[in-house]
Design a protein around this nucleic acid. Structure first.
Lengths: 115, 115
DNA sequence: CCGGCTGTATTATGTCACTGAAGCAGTCAT
DNA sequence: ATGACTGCTTCAGTGACATAATACAGCCGG
């Protein structure tokens, strides 16, 4: 996440995912066109298309060929559930293990957020 | 961490790092030889060497050419400090951001650990 | 219809990280 | 000196990733 060392198309995917979850794009909204988003992000249109591809594979966006790509109905909710499951199964366990090794507790982190 | 999608040499580095932090190797101990560790992990000796390289770049292991590699003095403490700083600066912020997006709180995670 | 927008497919090219194989070089016990 | 261990250097192969130019296919407002 926000890791510049990762492939561009994955970074783009995360940008879009975060935008949907944050409410910048809601169900039914049209996403930026492949060419427009590519220009905005300084990337290649094909790379953007590859990022969009993963979303339509999951049925999170519907494609109206010749018109644009739209956030599917219920996609926000489903995306949040998918990301949540992925987080709890694949992200959190190793993070928790690392925290134990380096001596960081959950209460340390909650105190951080207060600051 | 424990992510099979990451490069082998980084996975090896994490195995070694965890071993040191967990006390399997203490300051002054000799690490497994490049060839031995490679055979044990089913990796290429050069790949192991690349993992070890990152440790000597940080001064955490001292190299006695022709003899072996040894955990440097105070390396355990320094490694823990380095990993802790890296975690707080680079790992935790995006994780916290993602948690907020998907609706997972710290208390949810602490309840998980109880189970 | 037509021009301009949309996404998609094809092909080619360049770059770079990762991995691997073989051999060189230093240390030490014998 | 020899042999067995150590780490290290050099060369090469593979595949993923990103970019590019070009062309095609569907939609829509004029």
């Amino acid at each position: 996440m926000a890791d510049d060392s990762k492939p561009v198309y994955l970074r783009l995917r995360e940008i879009i995912s975060a935008s949907i979850l944050d409410g910048a794009f809601r169900d039914g909204d049209m996403l930026p066109s492949v060419r427009a988003f590519a220009a905005q992000q300084g990337a290649n249109p094909l790379t953007v298309a590859k990022a969009y591809q993963s979303f339509q594979d999951d049925g999170l966006v519907t494609v109206k060929r010749g018109v644009g790509m739209f956030v599917a109905d219920g996609a926000t909710r489903r995306l949040r559930a998918m990301e949540k499951a992925h987080f709890l199964e694949n992200v959190w366990p190793p993070v928790a293990a690392q925290m134990q090794r380096i001596g960081v507790s959950l209460s340390d982190l909650s105190n951080m957020q207060d600051a």
